[in-house]
């Protein structure tokens, strides 16, 4: 049984209870955040790095968390930003010249030993990689995690209308891509 978000936040802001509350936070959210990150960076090793960075950032910045949004929203926002920052930095470090981030992610997808899908699944992932960054995020959060638009709006700091439009365009592009691959 995990403690409530309110209990976690209170514990994290007290010096004596901070360690225990942080351990509880990691246990409660590690899997959800991992899968969110993994869908953005695709490879397990990168997802592991980003998940660690995300929790380090949470530890460092918990005092600045003002509780204007829910803890879950705040964590998702940190994880999303860390993932995008990581992917962009890796693209810059790449030895071979890459046209954009999707090239780096495509390499990740091909080389990741922990990819567990069949060919159709791989095609879907490649179709997702053709989307612009924002549409990719919205599609993953809506299609796989089924996060409500209102919550997504707080995480991505975008209006609900714009998110709905992004998802609609994303689904259409993916469908077109998959039809072309047949």
């Amino acid at each position: 049984m995990h403690p409530s978000d309110q209990e976690l936040v209170e514990g994290l802001k007290q010096e004596k209870a901070k360690n225990a509350a942080f351990q509880a936070l990691v246990l409660k959210y590690q899997q959800r955040l991992y899968w969110h990150i993994r869908k953005i960076v695709l490879s397990h090793d990168d997802a592991d790095d980003v998940l660690q960075n995300t929790f380090l950032k949470v530890w460092k910045n918990i005092e600045s968390f003002r509780e204007e949004s829910s803890l879950f929203t705040w964590l998702y926002r940190i994880a999303t930003n860390e993932s995008l920052t990581f992917v962009n930095s890796q693209k810059k470090r790449a030895i071979l010249p890459l046209n954009d981030v999707s090239d780096y992610l495509k390499q990740n997808l091909e080389s990741d030993p922990w990819f567990d899908g069949d060919e159709i699944q791989k095609t879907l992932q490649k179709a997702i990689l053709t989307l612009p960054e924002k549409q990719r995020l919205v599609f993953n959060m809506r299609y796989y995690d089924e996060i409500p638009y209102q919550e997504m709006s707080e995480i991505l700091e975008t209006s609900v209308g714009a998110l709905k439009a992004s998802y609609h365009h994303a689904v259409k592009k993916i469908e077109d891509y998959m039809n072309r691959q047949e």
């Binding site: 592991d48 699944q121 609609h168 689904v171």
Partner: peptide, 28 residues
């Protein structure tokens, strides 16, 4: 939007096709 998933997408499992190493979340 989720109910109106086009046919090609609706054929697929809605789970991400990824795995993690054994005991990853225990050791993390």
């Amino acid at each position: 939007s989720l109910e109106n998933i086009p046919p090609r997408l609706s054929e697929l499992k809605k789970e991400p096709p990824f795995r993690v190493p054994p005991h990853y979340f225990d050791d993390f």
